[in-house]
Design a protein around this nucleic acid. Structure first.
Length: 429
RNA sequence: UCCGGUGUAGCUCAGAGGUAGAGCGCUUGACUGUUAAUCAAGAUGUCGCUGGUUCGAUCCCAGCCGCCGGAGCCA
């Protein structure tokens, strides 16, 4: 049996069809009931005429509220009065499951939609986004698998940190305190010595207390690590990955992009090289714009957005000050004040979608940095072995998948890029 | 954590020191072309919580809590 999207064409005009779906809108007008039915592909109007269906079918059609599940049989007719231009004139209308009064109505608040998230994911907006999200995940796998990477997983329950202790979720592990992973990176640095080119898609957890339109406490992280390569090669991989994702979505999600009012040409234009600047240049540029920024501090959201200016591709900022960077980012041999690291800042949302670096090969530097951050070195001993047993140059990056989906879909808030968002204030449903 | 806003019917909101309102939704009825229709009738409340002022507080005051937006941090 055809899905609803297929029915909306001349091919089916005059044909008998059966559709399965859920009531999207319903109106009754005497002995005629108009039921708009949705399935995962679209919506179509079904007209139920009292004279054309069994009596029970008609009274059920009159009674059934929004989101009742139904199976309708009938003939497809072209009719300008129907939304979408086609409708099904019912010969049978079977209500599979009567719905309670639907809590989501015309008047909606953000909070209501979040409380009713399990129902709101049925909405057109959410299903469009979720379809694009699915393409994005698939495109990430395609890219890495087609380019010689092995997919390999790291534990979620971990004894050590990557990005700082205050942002760790603590877990009671048989009366011992361990943490939810913030990144697979430390394990990746061990595994890359075995498999050389690796990647992973996994959830990462950050217990940051920040409420913004671009933070989740649980988000999906696509990470890669390559041996024998430095920062430049890593950046190129990031550009190619982003480009591949955009091309794939532009190819496969035209109806969804249209519904979200996103131009596929914009996605197609996302091809390497992306604009690049060093942190030094960024600071200079910001100062010229009259912003009060000093060398040595991380760029804030405000500044990242100011930098984006008129760029319509991600902006790559490199060589941030070493002092403010995580312990595994190495000093630039040509300028010891800065690290061999980079961020991709997305246009429009003006926010980091990729962060990466070369990894420090100097075990003494790593230990020094960890000590400065007040870490217990013994918890990192296994990690330091990657430097003790045949260390080689290696690099990697992490991409926040929801931020990419947010950018591609043009979403105001990152929480709509994931079906059940977890933020500081929300863990239900 | 800081700054700003907000909390009243199922939902979106208005309201005033004297025991509560609209629209939508829901129920009932009418309607054979509706477009989250229209018309008529009906049901629906811990006015966020605690305390204070007052003859009387949902309204004024204090504290607390929830939520929303922004900032810091980061992907």
């Amino acid at each position: 049996m055809p899905k609803i999207a297929e029915i909306l064409s001349d091919d089916y005009e005059g044909k008998e069809v059966e559709i399965k779906g859920w009531i999207y809108r319903t109106r009754s007008s005497g002995s005629l009931v108009f039921v708009v039915v949705r399935d995962s592909t679209g919506v179509v109007q079904v007209t139920v005429n009292k004279d054309d269906v069994p009596e029970k079918d008609f009274s059920d059609a009159e009674k059934a509220l929004i989101e009742s599940s139904v199976i309708a049989k009938g003939t497809v007719a072209k009719d300008e009065r129907a939304p979408g231009g086609y409708e099904i004139r019912a010969s049978g209308f079977n209500v599979v499951g009567f719905a309670d009064k639907y809590p989501i109505t015309k008047d909606q608040s953000t909070e209501l939609l979040l409380d009713q998230r399990h129902l709101w994911i049925r909405s057109r907006k959410m299903t469009n986004v979720l379809k694009i999200r699915s393409t994005v995940f698939g495109a990430i796998h395609d890219y890495f698998r087609n380019n010689g990477y092995w997919e390999v997983q790291a534990p979620i329950l971990t004894p050590s940190m990557v990005e700082g202790g205050s942002t760790l979720f603590k877990v009671d592990y048989y009366d011992k305190e361990i943490y939810l992973a913030q990144s697979w990176q430390l394990y990746a640095e061990a595994m890359v010595m075995a498999l050389e080119k690796i990647y992973c898609i996994a959830p990462s957890f950050r217990a940051e207390k920040f409420r913004t339109t671009r933070h989740l406490t649980e988000y999906w992280h696509a990470e890669m690590e390559i041996a024998w390569e430095g920062m430049d090669e890593c950046i190129k991989e990031g550009e190619k990955l982003i480009s591949h994702i955009c091309q794939t979505v532009a190819e496969r999600n035209l109806p969804e992009l249209e519904a979200l009012k996103r131009d596929p040409e914009y996605l197609k234009s996302q091809v390497p090289p992306f604009p690049r600047m060093k942190y030094d240049e960024a600071i200079e540029m910001l100062q010229k714009k009259g912003m009060n920024v000093d060398w040595g501090k991380d760029l804030r959201t405000l500044e990242e957005r100011a930098l984006m200016g008129d760029f319509n591709k991600p902006l790559i900022v490199t060589h941030y000050p070493k002092e403010i960077m995580a312990f595994y980012k190495p000093r630039d041999p040509e300028n010891p004040d800065v690290a061999l690291c980079f961020d991709f800042i997305a246009p429009e949302i003006g926010d980091e979608i990729i962060g990466g670096s070369e990894r420090d090969a100097d075990i003494k530097e790593i230990i020094k940095s960890l000590e400065r951050e007040g870490e217990d070195i013994s918890r990192y001993d296994w990690y330091l072995d990657s430097r003790r047993f045949g260390s080689v140059q290696h690099s990697g990056f992490g991409m926040g998948i929801e931020r990419v989906v947010q950018w591609i879909c043009g979403l105001e808030h990152i929480r709509d890029a994931i079906p059940f968002p977890r933020t500081v204030a929300r863990y239900y449903p």
